Simulated scan of single mutants.
Amino acid sequence: MSERVALPEASRLTVSEDRGGYYRIVFPNGKVDGTAVRELYEVTMQLADQIEQLKLLVDLSGIEFMPSGGLGMLVTLRKKFLGSGGQLHIYVPDAQVREVFMVTNLDRLLNLYSNGDEASTSFK
């Protein structure tokens, strides 16, 4: 990566830059609550302001429950990414959480991956 980006700070999630040219957001407490959802939006917007065509991987490993607010935020982020040419990939290893995406038909709208390596190598 040629430009140096200031990584945003948050209390409920972790942001890191990967050598593959994308940024990863993880929820280390294994919880996607209201504060984490708000921070997901804020952190993503801060990165998008600094990086044209942002590549973002939201890593839901360790998450056993995905609230509707989290689902809605991922849809909101997808809409923002489409307009700017960015890419949003979501790593969903838990079968029950993945089923929530399927029941709501969000698996058809979002780029979901059950394999972490595939999620990170699928960026164009």
Rank of each mutant, 00 (worst) to 15 (best):
K80Q: 15
G20H: 06
S2D: 12
E9L: 14
L109P: 01
D33K: 08
L88C: 02
G62S: 11
R19W: 01
L56F: 01
Q87D: 01
F27L: 09
L13F: 07
M73V: 12
E118T: 13
Y91V: 04
D94C: 08
G69S: 15
M102V: 07
V58Y: 06
M73T: 14
F65L: 12
S16I: 09
L110Q: 11
A36Q: 10
M73K: 15
A6Y: 00
G34C: 02
Q96I: 02
T35H: 13
L54V: 00
S11Q: 12
V100W: 00
F123Q: 11
M1Q: 07
E64L: 07
K79H: 13
G86F: 02
M73G: 09
N111H: 14
E9Q: 15
M66A: 07
L47K: 05
N105A: 10
S122M: 11
D107M: 11
V75R: 05
E99I: 00
Y22F: 14
R24E: 13
K80V: 14
L40I: 08
V43S: 08
N29A: 15
T44W: 07
Q46H: 05
D18K: 04
H89V: 06
L106H: 03
E9S: 15
A36L: 10
I63K: 08
I63L: 09
G70M: 06
M45A: 12
G72M: 02
Y23F: 15
D94Q: 11
K79M: 12
S61L: 01
P8K: 03
D94H: 11
F27R: 10
Q53L: 04
T76P: 01
M1V: 06
D107C: 12
L112Y: 06
R4K: 09
R12I: 01
R12W: 05
S68I: 14
P28L: 14
R19P: 01
A95K: 14
T44E: 12
V100H: 00
R24M: 04
L13W: 05
V5S: 08
S16E: 15
E3H: 04
F123W: 07
R19I: 00
L47D: 07
V26W: 02
V15Q: 04
M45Q: 14
G116T: 01
R24A: 05
A10I: 07
I90K: 04
R98K: 13
